[in-house]
Design a protein around this nucleic acid. Structure first.
Lengths: 127, 127
DNA sequence: CTTAAAAATAGGAATCATTACTATTATGGG
DNA sequence: CCCATAATAGTAATGATTCCTATTTTTAAG
Protein backbone atom coordinates (compact mmCIF):
# COMPACT_ATOMS: atom_id res chain seq x y z
CA UNK A 1 0.00 0.00 0.00
CA UNK A 2 2.80 2.44 0.81
CA UNK A 3 3.89 4.29 -2.27
CA UNK A 4 7.41 3.61 -3.44
CA UNK A 5 9.40 5.83 -5.71
CA UNK A 6 9.79 4.80 -9.30
CA UNK A 7 11.82 6.51 -11.96
CA UNK A 8 9.14 5.74 -14.53
CA UNK A 9 6.49 7.53 -12.52
CA UNK A 10 8.79 10.50 -12.08
CA UNK A 11 9.50 10.72 -15.81
CA UNK A 12 5.79 10.49 -16.61
CA UNK A 13 4.90 13.28 -14.25
CA UNK A 14 7.83 15.43 -15.37
CA UNK A 15 6.75 15.06 -18.97
CA UNK A 16 3.15 15.92 -18.19
CA UNK A 17 4.26 19.08 -16.43
CA UNK A 18 5.94 20.33 -19.59
CA UNK A 19 2.71 20.13 -21.58
CA UNK A 20 -0.40 22.19 -21.41
CA UNK A 21 -2.31 20.44 -24.17
CA UNK A 22 -3.67 17.59 -22.04
CA UNK A 23 -2.16 14.58 -23.79
CA UNK A 24 -3.61 11.07 -23.84
CA UNK A 25 -1.89 8.05 -22.30
CA UNK A 26 -0.62 7.02 -25.70
CA UNK A 27 0.92 10.43 -26.35
CA UNK A 28 2.60 10.30 -22.95
CA UNK A 29 3.92 6.84 -23.82
CA UNK A 30 5.32 7.93 -27.19
CA UNK A 31 7.14 10.89 -25.69
CA UNK A 32 8.40 9.27 -22.52
CA UNK A 33 9.97 6.51 -24.58
CA UNK A 34 12.52 8.99 -25.87
CA UNK A 35 13.92 9.28 -22.40
CA UNK A 36 13.02 5.81 -21.18
CA UNK A 37 13.04 3.52 -24.24
CA UNK A 38 11.66 0.33 -22.77
CA UNK A 39 8.95 1.67 -20.52
CA UNK A 40 5.74 -0.23 -21.11
CA UNK A 41 2.37 1.20 -22.04
CA UNK A 42 0.84 -0.57 -19.05
CA UNK A 43 3.20 1.28 -16.76
CA UNK A 44 2.13 4.58 -18.29
CA UNK A 45 -1.53 3.75 -17.78
CA UNK A 46 -0.99 2.48 -14.26
CA UNK A 47 0.95 5.54 -13.18
CA UNK A 48 -1.36 8.04 -14.82
CA UNK A 49 -4.26 6.43 -12.98
CA UNK A 50 -2.33 6.31 -9.74
CA UNK A 51 -1.27 9.95 -10.01
CA UNK A 52 -4.86 10.92 -10.77
CA UNK A 53 -6.12 8.90 -7.79
CA UNK A 54 -3.76 10.62 -5.36
CA UNK A 55 -4.60 14.00 -6.85
CA UNK A 56 -1.24 14.86 -8.37
CA UNK A 57 -2.71 15.12 -11.86
CA UNK A 58 -6.20 15.40 -13.32
CA UNK A 59 -7.96 12.94 -15.60
CA UNK A 60 -10.12 14.67 -18.19
CA UNK A 61 -12.85 13.14 -20.32
CA UNK A 62 -14.30 14.87 -23.34
CA UNK A 63 -16.40 13.27 -26.02
CA UNK A 64 -13.63 11.67 -28.05
CA UNK A 65 -13.77 8.66 -25.77
CA UNK A 66 -10.12 8.72 -24.70
CA UNK A 67 -8.78 9.94 -21.39
CA UNK A 68 -6.66 13.08 -21.31
CA UNK A 69 -4.33 14.06 -18.50
CA UNK A 70 -3.45 17.41 -17.06
CA UNK A 71 -0.67 18.22 -14.59
CA UNK A 72 -2.56 21.35 -13.58
CA UNK A 73 -4.77 20.14 -10.75
CA UNK A 74 -6.47 23.43 -10.09
CA UNK A 75 -10.14 23.57 -11.01
CA UNK A 76 -10.40 25.10 -14.45
CA UNK A 77 -12.43 24.73 -17.63
CA UNK A 78 -11.62 23.55 -21.11
CA UNK A 79 -12.57 24.29 -24.68
CA UNK A 80 -12.54 21.55 -27.32
CA UNK A 81 -12.26 22.61 -30.96
CA UNK A 82 -14.66 20.51 -33.00
CA UNK A 83 -12.56 21.04 -36.12
CA UNK A 84 -8.98 20.33 -35.05
CA UNK A 85 -9.66 18.57 -31.75
CA UNK A 86 -7.35 20.85 -29.83
CA UNK A 87 -8.05 21.30 -26.13
CA UNK A 88 -7.47 24.77 -24.72
CA UNK A 89 -7.52 25.99 -21.12
CA UNK A 90 -10.02 28.73 -20.41
CA UNK A 91 -9.31 31.54 -18.01
CA UNK A 92 -12.56 32.10 -16.21
CA UNK A 93 -14.00 32.13 -12.73
CA UNK A 94 -15.47 29.05 -11.15
CA UNK A 95 -19.05 28.26 -12.09
CA UNK A 96 -19.98 26.93 -8.67
CA UNK A 97 -23.21 28.91 -8.74
CA UNK A 98 -24.63 26.50 -11.34
CA UNK A 99 -24.71 23.80 -8.66
CA UNK A 100 -27.10 25.94 -6.64
CA UNK A 101 -29.26 26.42 -9.71
CA UNK A 102 -29.26 22.66 -10.29
CA UNK A 103 -30.07 21.90 -6.66
CA UNK A 104 -33.19 24.02 -6.47
CA UNK A 105 -35.56 21.35 -7.70
CA UNK A 106 -33.55 18.28 -6.75
CA UNK A 107 -33.66 16.31 -3.55
CA UNK A 108 -30.17 14.76 -3.67
CA UNK A 109 -26.87 16.32 -2.74
CA UNK A 110 -24.92 17.97 -5.55
CA UNK A 111 -21.21 17.76 -4.88
CA UNK A 112 -19.64 18.75 -8.16
CA UNK A 113 -20.07 19.50 -11.81
CA UNK A 114 -18.33 18.69 -15.06
CA UNK A 115 -18.36 21.36 -17.73
CA UNK A 116 -16.51 21.93 -20.95
CA UNK A 117 -17.14 24.07 -23.98
CA UNK A 118 -16.85 23.36 -27.68
CA UNK A 119 -16.79 25.30 -30.93
CA UNK A 120 -14.17 26.58 -33.36
CA UNK A 121 -10.80 27.70 -32.03
CA UNK A 122 -9.10 30.92 -33.11
CA UNK A 123 -6.66 29.20 -35.43
CA UNK A 124 -9.33 27.17 -37.20
CA UNK A 125 -11.59 30.15 -37.70
CA UNK A 126 -8.98 31.82 -39.86
CA UNK A 127 -8.94 29.05 -42.45
CA UNK B 1 -28.59 7.67 -48.57
CA UNK B 2 -32.37 7.83 -48.36
CA UNK B 3 -33.60 6.44 -45.10
CA UNK B 4 -35.72 3.32 -45.31
CA UNK B 5 -38.05 2.13 -42.62
CA UNK B 6 -36.97 -0.77 -40.48
CA UNK B 7 -38.98 -2.48 -37.82
CA UNK B 8 -35.87 -2.88 -35.69
CA UNK B 9 -35.24 0.85 -35.66
CA UNK B 10 -38.86 1.48 -34.76
CA UNK B 11 -38.74 -0.97 -31.87
CA UNK B 12 -35.51 0.57 -30.59
CA UNK B 13 -36.92 4.07 -30.63
CA UNK B 14 -40.22 2.96 -29.11
CA UNK B 15 -38.38 1.26 -26.28
CA UNK B 16 -36.20 4.28 -25.64
CA UNK B 17 -39.26 6.50 -25.39
CA UNK B 18 -40.63 4.38 -22.57
CA UNK B 19 -37.53 4.97 -20.44
CA UNK B 20 -36.32 8.04 -18.73
CA UNK B 21 -33.19 6.54 -17.19
CA UNK B 22 -30.95 6.95 -20.25
CA UNK B 23 -30.02 3.32 -20.92
CA UNK B 24 -26.85 2.11 -22.62
CA UNK B 25 -26.80 0.30 -25.96
CA UNK B 26 -26.47 -2.99 -24.15
CA UNK B 27 -29.52 -2.32 -21.98
CA UNK B 28 -31.50 -1.39 -25.07
CA UNK B 29 -30.36 -4.63 -26.68
CA UNK B 30 -31.37 -6.78 -23.71
CA UNK B 31 -34.83 -5.27 -23.55
CA UNK B 32 -35.57 -5.07 -27.24
CA UNK B 33 -34.77 -8.76 -27.57
CA UNK B 34 -37.95 -9.56 -25.65
CA UNK B 35 -39.97 -8.19 -28.51
CA UNK B 36 -37.52 -8.94 -31.29
CA UNK B 37 -35.57 -12.03 -30.22
CA UNK B 38 -32.96 -12.23 -32.94
CA UNK B 39 -32.08 -8.59 -33.35
CA UNK B 40 -28.32 -8.18 -33.33
CA UNK B 41 -26.27 -5.96 -31.06
CA UNK B 42 -24.69 -4.33 -34.10
CA UNK B 43 -28.13 -3.29 -35.32
CA UNK B 44 -28.86 -1.68 -31.98
CA UNK B 45 -25.59 0.27 -32.09
CA UNK B 46 -26.06 1.28 -35.71
CA UNK B 47 -29.58 2.53 -35.16
CA UNK B 48 -28.84 4.34 -31.94
CA UNK B 49 -26.00 6.16 -33.72
CA UNK B 50 -28.18 6.87 -36.73
CA UNK B 51 -31.05 8.18 -34.62
CA UNK B 52 -28.61 10.38 -32.71
CA UNK B 53 -27.12 11.68 -35.96
CA UNK B 54 -30.49 12.71 -37.36
CA UNK B 55 -31.44 14.28 -34.05
CA UNK B 56 -34.26 11.94 -33.04
CA UNK B 57 -32.48 10.91 -29.85
CA UNK B 58 -29.57 12.22 -27.81
CA UNK B 59 -26.28 10.51 -27.09
CA UNK B 60 -25.01 11.24 -23.58
CA UNK B 61 -21.52 10.70 -22.24
CA UNK B 62 -20.72 10.75 -18.56
CA UNK B 63 -17.56 9.46 -16.98
CA UNK B 64 -18.39 5.78 -16.86
CA UNK B 65 -16.99 5.44 -20.38
CA UNK B 66 -20.17 4.02 -21.96
CA UNK B 67 -22.64 5.89 -24.12
CA UNK B 68 -26.13 6.51 -22.79
CA UNK B 69 -29.14 7.36 -24.93
CA UNK B 70 -32.09 9.62 -24.29
CA UNK B 71 -35.28 9.90 -26.33
CA UNK B 72 -35.81 13.38 -24.90
CA UNK B 73 -33.98 15.61 -27.36
CA UNK B 74 -34.66 18.86 -25.58
CA UNK B 75 -31.63 20.52 -24.02
CA UNK B 76 -31.58 19.54 -20.37
CA UNK B 77 -29.09 18.65 -17.68
CA UNK B 78 -28.31 15.47 -15.81
CA UNK B 79 -27.21 14.36 -12.38
CA UNK B 80 -25.08 11.24 -11.90
CA UNK B 81 -25.15 9.57 -8.49
CA UNK B 82 -21.62 8.57 -7.59
CA UNK B 83 -22.91 5.84 -5.28
CA UNK B 84 -25.56 3.98 -7.30
CA UNK B 85 -24.71 5.29 -10.75
CA UNK B 86 -28.25 6.39 -11.46
CA UNK B 87 -28.74 9.21 -13.94
CA UNK B 88 -31.50 11.68 -13.16
CA UNK B 89 -32.95 14.50 -15.26
CA UNK B 90 -32.70 17.91 -13.68
CA UNK B 91 -35.41 20.51 -14.07
CA UNK B 92 -33.56 23.75 -14.47
CA UNK B 93 -33.17 26.62 -16.89
CA UNK B 94 -30.57 26.63 -19.61
CA UNK B 95 -27.09 27.68 -18.57
CA UNK B 96 -26.32 29.47 -21.81
CA UNK B 97 -24.89 32.43 -19.92
CA UNK B 98 -21.83 30.35 -18.98
CA UNK B 99 -20.78 30.40 -22.63
CA UNK B 100 -20.58 34.19 -22.47
CA UNK B 101 -18.49 33.90 -19.32
CA UNK B 102 -16.19 31.43 -21.05
CA UNK B 103 -15.88 33.57 -24.17
CA UNK B 104 -14.69 36.71 -22.42
CA UNK B 105 -11.03 35.82 -22.51
CA UNK B 106 -11.06 33.47 -25.47
CA UNK B 107 -10.52 34.26 -29.12
CA UNK B 108 -12.34 31.28 -30.65
CA UNK B 109 -16.05 30.80 -31.18
CA UNK B 110 -17.91 28.99 -28.43
CA UNK B 111 -20.87 27.13 -29.87
CA UNK B 112 -21.96 24.86 -27.06
CA UNK B 113 -21.28 23.42 -23.66
CA UNK B 114 -21.49 20.07 -21.95
CA UNK B 115 -22.44 20.08 -18.29
CA UNK B 116 -23.54 17.46 -15.84
CA UNK B 117 -23.64 17.29 -12.07
CA UNK B 118 -22.67 14.57 -9.65
CA UNK B 119 -23.14 13.74 -5.98
CA UNK B 120 -25.45 11.56 -3.90
CA UNK B 121 -29.02 11.03 -5.00
CA UNK B 122 -31.98 11.27 -2.65
CA UNK B 123 -32.43 7.51 -2.34
CA UNK B 124 -28.77 6.86 -1.56
CA UNK B 125 -28.60 9.59 1.05
CA UNK B 126 -31.17 7.79 3.17
CA UNK B 127 -29.05 4.66 3.57
C1' DC C 1 26.28 -2.82 3.80
C1' DT C 2 22.98 -6.82 3.51
C1' DT C 3 18.51 -8.64 3.50
C1' DA C 4 13.87 -9.34 2.74
C1' DA C 5 9.16 -7.82 2.28
C1' DA C 6 6.49 -4.93 -0.47
C1' DA C 7 5.85 -2.27 -4.49
C1' DA C 8 6.67 -1.61 -9.28
C1' DT C 9 7.87 -3.10 -13.75
C1' DA C 10 7.84 -5.15 -18.74
C1' DG C 11 5.53 -7.67 -21.80
C1' DG C 12 1.78 -9.80 -23.21
C1' DA C 13 -2.94 -11.54 -22.71
C1' DA C 14 -7.63 -10.32 -21.69
C1' DT C 15 -11.62 -7.27 -21.52
C1' DC C 16 -15.13 -4.28 -22.98
C1' DA C 17 -17.54 -1.03 -25.79
C1' DT C 18 -17.95 -0.07 -30.27
C1' DT C 19 -17.35 -0.34 -35.32
C1' DA C 20 -16.50 -2.77 -39.67
C1' DC C 21 -17.38 -6.47 -42.91
C1' DT C 22 -20.25 -9.49 -45.75
C1' DA C 23 -23.67 -12.38 -47.44
C1' DT C 24 -28.59 -12.21 -47.13
C1' DT C 25 -33.12 -9.96 -46.56
C1' DA C 26 -36.42 -6.08 -46.53
C1' DT C 27 -38.14 -1.70 -48.33
C1' DG C 28 -40.31 1.29 -51.60
C1' DG C 29 -40.44 4.01 -55.97
C1' DG C 30 -41.51 3.36 -60.82
C1' DC D 1 -44.00 -6.85 -59.81
C1' DC D 2 -38.90 -5.41 -60.09
C1' DC D 3 -34.87 -3.96 -58.77
C1' DA D 4 -31.72 -0.65 -56.80
C1' DT D 5 -30.47 0.26 -52.38
C1' DA D 6 -30.90 0.35 -47.48
C1' DA D 7 -30.84 -2.57 -43.55
C1' DT D 8 -29.97 -6.75 -41.16
C1' DA D 9 -27.68 -10.81 -38.52
C1' DG D 10 -23.72 -12.69 -37.30
C1' DT D 11 -19.19 -12.37 -36.73
C1' DA D 12 -14.60 -10.43 -36.97
C1' DA D 13 -11.82 -6.50 -35.99
C1' DT D 14 -10.48 -2.42 -33.47
C1' DG D 15 -8.80 0.52 -29.89
C1' DA D 16 -8.45 2.03 -25.30
C1' DT D 17 -7.70 0.26 -21.06
C1' DT D 18 -6.98 -3.23 -17.48
C1' DC D 19 -5.23 -7.53 -15.79
C1' DC D 20 -1.69 -11.14 -15.02
C1' DT D 21 2.82 -12.91 -13.76
C1' DA D 22 7.56 -13.60 -13.48
C1' DT D 23 11.27 -10.47 -12.57
C1' DT D 24 13.35 -6.24 -10.85
C1' DT D 25 13.45 -2.07 -7.68
C1' DT D 26 12.82 0.26 -3.64
C1' DT D 27 13.37 0.89 1.09
C1' DA D 28 13.11 -0.03 6.01
C1' DA D 29 15.47 -2.62 9.43
C1' DG D 30 19.26 -5.26 11.27
Amino acid sequence: MALKYSRQRQVIKDFLMTRKDHPTADTVYMNVRNEYPNISLGTVYRNLSLLADIGEIQRLRFDDGVDHFDADTSAHYHFVCTRCGRIIDLKMDSLDHIMDLAGRSFDGEIRGHVTYFHGICGDCRES
